[in-house]
Simulated scan of single mutants.
Amino acid sequence: MLTRKTVNTIFLLGLAVFVSLSFFKPISWPAFALLMASWFLLTLGGSFFIRWNYHMTSLNSNNEINKPQVAITFDDGPHPEYTPKALSLLEKYNAKATFFCIGKNIEKHPELFKEIIRQGHSVGNHTFSHANTFGFFGTEKVMEELTLTNKLVEGISGLKMALYRPAFGVTNPSIARAVKKLGLKTIGWNVRSLDTTFRNEDQVLKRITSRTQNGAIILLHDTSAKSIAVLERLLVFLEERKLQSVTVDQMFQIRAYE
């Protein structure tokens, strides 16, 4: 994948070539516009598609794994109605998952958050506010959000979280700097369920199962009845395929906590 540094270098070289050539022969404005548009579209795509590893490196799947394992992950909880249902299903099928929780939801439901940990699942930082404008926050504001959530979790559980998942999967230079300064490891995905969209249960399940293989990281949300219904059918699918759902840190052999 093209990184931001590589794309910026190519763009600047192209711009330098255009400027140099313009001294000998006029360069049409559409050529400059095309160069600028290409840079903008690549940067925009790199900000919204975490698998590109454009602004920062994320663990999106484990292609080198030699075990029949996948990692189910949940974003946006804990939710008082649906997280307990997810935990019940995971326990029924002897599956483990990673919950990337929003700080303000942890603050509202600390006992439920502790129950996630008690049942042997891993937890990670999914920002404090999950604000729609998070992608526009500066480095200091991003650090403030992540630090607030980590301190909250440490106070509740004694654990110092080391895993981070960007809100909406959005990355940019400010977020990259904040994550680096805090020493967090970013976790992405390679199977996006789109369970929060208009797609129905069958469509979401088909999307997941058609993309799931050893080493996959599956993105779900523990925030709706549809997602819980999909989870149950997914767990049956994994059981039939003899694929085990494990925590992200187990699949990558990394530390979930400092």
Rank of each mutant, 00 (worst) to 15 (best):
T212W: 05
Y164L: 08
K180I: 03
A33D: 11
D249T: 08
V19P: 07
V153R: 05
A97K: 15
S245N: 07
P166A: 15
N63I: 07
F134D: 00
Q250M: 12
L238N: 05
V19A: 11
E64P: 02
I175T: 05
I72M: 10
V17T: 12
I187G: 04
Q213W: 03
S174T: 02
E81A: 12
N172G: 08
R255C: 07
I217C: 11
K160E: 13
K151A: 10
V19H: 03
M143P: 00
G120V: 14
L35A: 11
E240A: 14
D75G: 06
E140Q: 05
F134Y: 03
E115F: 05
P166E: 11
L112M: 10
G120S: 12
S227A: 13
V153Q: 03
Q203D: 14
I217H: 09
V246A: 08
K92I: 11
V179F: 04
V170Q: 04
F99S: 01
N63E: 15
F99K: 09
I10T: 01
A86Y: 06
A229D: 09
L59M: 14
A16I: 00
E154S: 14
K181M: 06
N62V: 00
L182N: 01
E144G: 00
K25R: 12
M251Q: 14
H126E: 06
E115Q: 14
G183K: 00
K96R: 15
K141V: 03
P173G: 12
R4Y: 04
E64M: 03
F100Y: 13
N132M: 06
V246P: 07
L243Q: 14
K185I: 10
S28K: 10
R211C: 04
F48V: 13
F128M: 04
W39V: 02
D75Y: 07
Q69N: 03
E140G: 03
V204H: 10
A225E: 15
K92L: 09
S122N: 13
F168N: 01
E258I: 05
F198Y: 12
Q203P: 02
T149S: 09
S88Q: 15
I254W: 10
L163H: 08
D202P: 12
G46I: 10
T6Y: 10
F168T: 03
S88F: 05
T127F: 07
F128H: 00
A31P: 12
F40T: 10
F74P: 09
A95Q: 14
V7G: 05
I50M: 12
H79K: 12
R118E: 06
